[in-house]
Design a protein around this nucleic acid. Structure first.
Lengths: 145, 145
DNA sequence: CATCTATCTGGACTCACTCAAGAAAACGTC
DNA sequence: GACGTTTTCTTGAGTGAGTCCAGATAGATG
């Protein structure tokens, strides 16, 4: 029962268990890397009316509680995924925007240390790999020689 | 004379040499990691009126020409720096947003290869290190024990 | 069940950026 | 240097993502 797990995750973080929050967690686990608007739409599909503000509040609260992880891959909108505490990275297609997870070989953050730390206390290293997915490579070689 | 270099860089890329473009290049070299609005403001300080649209067009054209590099470190706005073709990375303070360059030990892209490539043809690996800078660490330990 | 306070609603607003049409200015050619 | 072509810039409106605010609602605690 995923929603039971979700409910206990919420309670664990000291957050109230509400229908919009449970729906948000279900949506994010079914549509990983969804942006806020997609999450809002999918939540509305299950519950009827849910305000944009509620969705943003939820996404922010759950991100702060480390139940969700917010990822920025360069586009204008943030993407959300369940926080699996595995410090994995992302692979983005420069043509179509397709987004895949890449397991981190180290597993825990920070998986890399910079050559020079500028006296920062490094917490995480986020890596975004950019390239062309197989589908886009085929399309491009078919049209452009 | 930096503006001579800038002018030839523009001509090399097949772009016309205009005052707003030269000013933009000067501004970006003086204020690395500036966002579009800061660039626009600094360009206006030198030239008088320059439209927002002109600045965005310039930043896009110069980024396409690989004279500038656009970097996204998670905030809402894009940052710009001179493209040095060295594939360096960035270090961001999670408290104050301070942004530093980190040299890439490999030097050319992609400096890393993912554990699993999902049949992508990887072009670059962009790494963002997040942590606390020394200044913010001091401030935090002073107020919160 | 009552109360308290976290959460959600609705609506206005900001910010970063884009679109479109026409005016202005670079560059190549005479 | 003047001319015409084409790129670049101006003006002004528009979009998408996200935030702010005041008040209504509904989990949690006693």
């Amino acid at each position: 029962m995923p929603s039971l797990d979700h409910a206990s995750a919420l309670r664990h973080a000291g957050l109230r268990v509400t229908a919009p929050r449970l729906a948000t967690l279900e949506v994010v686990s079914e549509l990983p890397h969804a942006d806020a608007e997609s999450v809002a739409q999918a939540v509305r599909d299950r519950l009827g009316t849910v305000s944009r503000q509620a969705v943003y509040d939820i996404l922010n609260a759950l991100t702060d509680a480390e139940i969700l992880r917010r990822v920025s891959v360069g586009g204008r909108s943030m993407r959300y995924e369940l926080h699996r505490h595995d410090n994995h990275h992302h692979l983005v297609c420069t043509e179509c925007g397709r987004l895949e997870d890449v397991p981190c070989t180290v597993g825990h953050a920070p998986c890399l240390t910079p050559a020079e730390d500028h006296d920062f206390e490094i917490e995480v290293a986020e890596v975004v790999f950019r390239g062309r997915c197989s589908r886009c490579r085929e399309t491009l070689t078919a049209t452009a020689p």
